[in-house]
Write a protein that binds this DNA or RNA. Structure first.
Lengths: 123, 123
DNA sequence: TTTCTTATTCTACATTTGTAGAAGTAACAT
DNA sequence: ATGTTACTTCTACAAATGTAGAATAAGAAA
């Protein structure tokens, strides 16, 4: 499932809210907010793709994501690793950690996280 | 710079080859290869976007990437971290390392890479 | 040089994406 | 009851994307 930018942005809102009525979605958009019909169109397209669903409440719908954020992210991320690092995690890791934007503090934090994970696997 | 799939695929080829003539590009494509004119269109679009350039050799052109792979990847990656992990590297790291697809071996490898990087920073 | 092959440009066209107006409908406020 | 508001569906349309045919030009092969 590969969503265009505009739909992905809407998904981000739904992932964050888990459930949301039109009104909540509109509120969540940053300025300049798209027109209501634009949002409606996107919701409709996402419904067609079955990336989201809704529960009818009277005459209003409460939308919720069907596509999981983790899955969506993972598939993208894996795709990138594959294309950019020849499917090699270490190669990616190396690039990632030598990234100038990363502070030493973050590196230490990362190390901690990795160690923790290794420990968790052991048992 | 955000390239559509088809153009990105062509860029991958150019990044890999560094320089390439039409013929080399065609060869690099996996089956089913796109028609030559399709590739030509993509090259033209990439030239317009100044993502690539070329050197004229007689009547043939040798294309090369102008847009750097690292930069392209970084900007995408950062965008994803921002959208999916609220711009938090540790949050991403945590998700990344707890990924089921990752073997313990890879984790150890990652730890090694991180430590190496920390050491490198120190001096 | 005649023909074949290859690269390039132009043109074309269906799909997808981004955005939104028009209109209908039902709940809501007065 | 009745105009106002919120939501949804339909329709629309420009721009971007994916793909490629037609035509052309210029070496390469015969």
């Amino acid at each position: 499932m590969n969503l265009p930018k505009s739909e992905e942005q809407l998904m981000q809102i739904l992932w964050q809210k888990e459930k949301a009525f039109m009104k909540d979605i509109t509120e969540a958009y940053p300025e300049p907010k798209p027109k209501a019909t634009t949002i409606a169109t996107l919701l409709k397209r996402l419904l067609t793709k079955e990336a989201i669903g809704f529960t009818q409440f009277g005459n209003v719908r409460q939308y919720y994501p069907i596509l999981k954020k983790e899955d969506y992210f993972s598939s993208h991320f894996n795709g990138m690793i594959k294309n950019f690092f020849d499917d090699s995690i270490p190669q990616f890791a190396s690039f990632f950690t030598s990234n100038k934007n990363m502070t030493e503090e973050q590196l230490l934090e990362l190390k901690r996280v990795v160690e923790e994970q290794i420990k968790a696997r052991k048992k």
